[in-house]
Computed example of a mutant assay.
Amino acid sequence: MWRLIKLLVFLTALAAIGLIGYAYLGPIFTPDDFAPPVEQVVEPIVLEAN
């Protein structure tokens, strides 16, 4: 039972390290995954002047 708990703790720590590494190193190696979608939005604005 203790081996299973140690394995789960190890896998959780490994997953956390992987997620942190992806967050910090991901934009360097795969910038397209982290780029925001670019779309031009044009909306008319009506100003009421008195």
Rank of each mutant, 00 (worst) to 15 (best):
T12H: 06
G18W: 03
K6I: 08
T12C: 08
A49W: 15
Y24D: 11
G18V: 01
A49R: 15
L47D: 06
L19F: 06
G18I: 01
A16S: 10
I45P: 01
V42A: 08
V46I: 13
E43R: 06
Y22S: 07
P27D: 11
E48M: 09
A13Y: 05
P36I: 00
Y22A: 07
I5A: 10
R3E: 15
R3G: 03
V9C: 04
V42R: 09
V41D: 12
F34P: 01
E39A: 06
V41Q: 14
G21K: 02
A15G: 02
V42M: 03
A35M: 09
L14C: 06
I45N: 06
A23D: 09
V41T: 12
A35G: 03
L14H: 02
F29S: 12
G18T: 02
A15F: 14
E48H: 01
N50G: 04
V9Q: 03
P27T: 08
W2G: 02
V42D: 10
G18L: 12
A49P: 03
L8K: 08
A35T: 11
I5R: 10
R3A: 12
G18H: 02
A35V: 01
P31M: 11
L19W: 07
L14G: 02
V46H: 11
T12Q: 09
Y22Q: 11
P31N: 11
Y22W: 14
K6C: 11
L4E: 12
L11S: 15
P36E: 06
A49M: 15
V38W: 06
F34I: 01
I20R: 07
I5Q: 05
E39L: 05
Q40T: 08
L19A: 14
V41E: 14
A49N: 15
Q40R: 07
T12I: 03
Y22R: 09
L8I: 07
P37F: 13
L14K: 02
P44E: 04
A23H: 12
I28K: 15
V9T: 04
D32Y: 05
Q40E: 08
A49S: 15
L14Q: 10
Y24S: 09
R3P: 02
A15L: 12
L4D: 09
L7M: 05
I5P: 00
I20W: 14
I20E: 13
P44G: 00
D32K: 05
L7Q: 10
V42S: 11
I20H: 06
T30F: 11
N50Y: 13
V46Q: 08
K6Y: 01
A15D: 01
T30G: 01
F29E: 15
I17H: 10
I28L: 14
E43C: 00
L7E: 04
V41P: 00
R3I: 04
V38Q: 14
R3F: 05
A15V: 03
Y22F: 13
P44V: 01
V38M: 08
G21H: 04
R3N: 13
I17P: 02
Y24V: 12
A49C: 10
